[in-house]
Design a binder for these strands. Structure first.
Length: 478
DNA sequence: CGCATTTGACCTGCGC
DNA sequence: GCGCAGGTCAAATGCG
């Protein structure tokens, strides 16, 4: 038994040491490679657990098999009281145990070093993120200055698609900057679309303070329309309930009620009252055709910290809104790409999520009334028929899907734009798209990993930009 | 008394 | 310009 136990420990040590060695030789966080560490806690769980297991085994081993290590490292009662017994053990066993203990110590040192290394990498990522953010702001300012110097007629011809061009220009400019890592730019671009709009808005404010011209006013008007579009992107949720309002974890204050045309039931207007001046609003109305169906439409992003139950739906709406906006704006004709619908559909129900372009503002509808078809019944099986639970279950999948689809669409359009401008660079971008697709597939294939990645990205963005949806932690998807 | 809800007035955008 | 519909505001009202 003793030999068996020591063998186990030895195997564990060898495995961990070899793993640590591999890890050391190949940095875990790399934008160019496929491994990306976003939160050291998540990625250490396995190793940590392993290490703890080793420690437990060691302690257990020492408690049961008192052996003098001659290092006098142990201060436990057993180690001192049984010293006489230890000295009577075979010297070979003492050597083995000593070696193993030393190996474990070495492993601990390696893990600590690795931990430190990863911390540094996370810091670097944060720093690069901040740098890119600054560069982006500068580019936006530069672009606005160029526009001001340009012809006014040209400006008049511009329509609401100004945003899409801005997005593409930003992406290309970032990509062409040799000082920035290619994939870092991509990661940055996909992180938070709403942040770009904040930059845009900030530029307008700066312009207004500097030049009070008709042109700047026109820019402001256009940007206000832009912001309005951002704000107006909506996510509609259909649920079957008898209550007048679904419970989504947020606090709402009713500020209006209207009779809508063609519907005997009034439409209620609610404003989020959890935070001061929170821009999020929602409309609640019963379906005219089926009065048991309650249609709740969310609009905007929270500017405050949300409780976990509210985070679920908020992150979903944020991600959906980001997807809607990125997808629709990247289209050359201003329409939402049809493949969004396909990619946005949940894996367990093709009819669960639908997009509407007929409405004044892009709206995605999540139909939670169809829970009896396909695999959704399996997914929801055993879960209480409570909206909060449904959201909790639904949200991560949706947010994940929306984020990946938005990212893919962004890059696909980006590729088209770059190819047309630079010709030969298309292949490079194409390979990157492949990489993104592969990464997306890997992420979507492993729920735990995707959850960890999303949580980490959310926490990183959230910590850097407290104004952005605490959901998002959801931006765009919170 | 403070807060939430109600409800009529008002604003805005759009189509004719 | 006018009317309609959707959305918002704010004073009045209700409730704990």
């Amino acid at each position: 038994m003793y030999k068996k136990l020591t063998n186990n420990i030895e195997d564990t040590c060898n495995n961990d040491l070899s793993n640590a060695a591999v890890t050391q030789s190949s940095p875990m966080m790399s934008f160019n490679g496929k491994r990306l560490v976003v939160d050291e806690i998540d990625f250490f769980t396995e190793k940590k657990k392993k290490s703890e297991d080793v420690d437990n085994q060691l302690v257990h081993h020492q408690m049961e098999l008192p052996i003098n290590t001659n290092l006098d490292l142990l201060i436990t009662k057993s180690s001192t009281s049984n010293r006489s017994n230890m000295e009577e053990g075979p010297s070979e066993s003492r050597d083995n145990t000593r070696n193993k203990f030393a190996a474990m110590l070495a492993e601990l040192h390696i893990i600590n070093a690795e931990n430190q290394h990863l911390r540094e990498l996370v810091d670097q990522v944060n720093n690069k993120y901040n740098d890119l953010h600054k560069d982006l702001t500068k580019l936006m300012q530069k672009q606005h200055k160029n526009e001001i110097n340009g012809a006014i007629e040209e400006k008049d011809k511009r329509d609401d698609m100004i945003i899409s061009r801005s997005f593409l220009d930003i992406g290309i400019a970032t990509k062409e900057d040799p000082s920035q890592q290619h994939s870092e730019a991509k990661l940055q671009e996909s992180k938070n679309i709403t942040e770009l709009m904040e930059c845009k808005n900030r530029d307008v404010v700066e312009l207004d303070s500097g030049k009070d011209s008709a042109k700047s006013r026109r820019d402001k008007h256009e940007s206000s329309e832009t912001m309005s579009m951002i704000k107006k992107a909506r996510v509609s949720v259909r649920t079957k309930t008898d209550s007048s309002m679904i419970s989504d974890g947020c606090q709402w204050r009713k500020y209006g009620q209207k009779m809508a045309k063609g519907n005997p039931c009034p439409r209620s207007y609610y404003r989020c009252s959890m935070g001061t001046a929170c821009p999020v609003r929602k409309q609640v109305q019963r379906n005219a055709e089926d009065l048991s169906v309650l249609i709740t439409t969310y609009e905007g992003q929270h500017n405050h910290v949300l409780p976990p139950t509210a985070k679920a739906i908020a992150s979903t709406t944020s991600a959906a809104a980001s997807m809607l906006l990125s997808g629709s704006m990247l289209s050359s004709d201003g329409l939402i790409y049809p493949n969004i619908l396909e990619s946005a559909s949940l894996p367990f129900s093709q009819n669960l999520a639908t997009l509407s372009t007929s409405a004044p503002f892009p709206t995605i509808t999540l139909d939670l009334t169809q829970s009896t078809t396909n695999n959704s019944s399996q997914l929801l099986q055993g879960a209480p028929q409570d909206n909060q639970h449904i959201y909790s279950l639904l949200s991560p999948l949706l947010a994940q899907k929306f984020m990946s689809s938005a990212t893919n669409i962004f890059y696909q359009n980006h590729q088209t734009k770059v190819s047309s401008l630079h010709g030969s660079q298309g292949t490079e971008t194409a390979s990157f798209v492949d990489t993104v697709n592969a990464a997306t597939a890997a992420i979507t294939g492993d729920p735990k990993f995707s959850a960890a990645v999303m949580a980490a990205i959310t926490s990183i963005i959230g910590s850097s930009h407290p104004n952005i949806n605490g959901t998002s932690g959801d931006p765009a998807l919170q």
